[in-house]
Design a binder for these strands. Structure first.
Lengths: 113, 113
DNA sequence: GGTTCGCGCAACCAGGAGGTTGCATTCATG
DNA sequence: CATGAATGCAACCTCCTGGTTGCGCGAACC
């Protein structure tokens, strides 16, 4: 298999790390409308160089958050929903554990029986 | 107000950035059981120095993910659920926008009528 | 009251992240 | 085929990050 395909990863830290940058978050938000865009198109809205946007897109691709296909002379990037769903479920687990702990504490503290 | 209190922040990037480290993710997972712990206690399970754990805890505190109270000679860190919920809802929005786009595409492409 | 435990502060260091510039390459197009 | 647009590659720079060590200080405890 290729060496740059981490789509089914179990560790959510790289995904969160990729999301932890305002530029990348904006790129992902733009791409989440379902329309693939070229690097030049995405660079037009960002306030930096095309090369910088390219690097951010490579990071997002490395985390599996976007996919990249070459069409003609431009490379189009598209949103990939998998890692977002996994990150969401991880946060769900953390929240659930916290809620359970709160519930246990509440049941212990107001024990009227 | 104090200069180190970003609990009600609207920008989710710092929260994701704080979550984007395996050590911090492990600390947060440990603390999500509701029990506050001291730095020394948290450092015992991590494979690094107490100072390194302290730095990570400061990062988590800066993102509002944990709260810190001094009791006696030790400082206890506790999980704070607010930012996790906000990050979760942000990912919900992204996923929702993606789902809507998919639905529009589906309705357009299989138009048998 | 001295010792030990828990912590904070500061300096220091290697490596990576984010960004720029310059140049080569590839594809579309008149 | 010559030109221009879109990209890739590489070098370079600055700053932050993650980690270490050493030391000082206040709180507990015998």
């Amino acid at each position: 298999m290729s060496s740059s395909s981490p789509p089914a990863d179990g560790d959510p830290a790289p995904v969160f790390s990729a999301l932890g940058d305002p530029t990348r978050l904006a790129l992902l938000s733009t791409l989440s409308d379902g329309q693939p865009r070229s690097i030049a198109s995405l660079s037009a809205d960002a306030g930096m160089t095309r090369q910088a946007v390219t690097k951010h897109l490579r990071v997002l691709e490395g985390a599996g958050l976007v996919s990249n296909i070459r069409v003609g002379r431009e490379s189009r990037f598209a949103f990939a929903p998998g890692p977002v769903a996994r990150a969401r479920s991880y946060l769900d687990e953390v929240s659930a554990r916290w809620d359970e702990a709160l519930e246990r504490l509440r049941a212990f503290v107001q024990r009227p029986d």
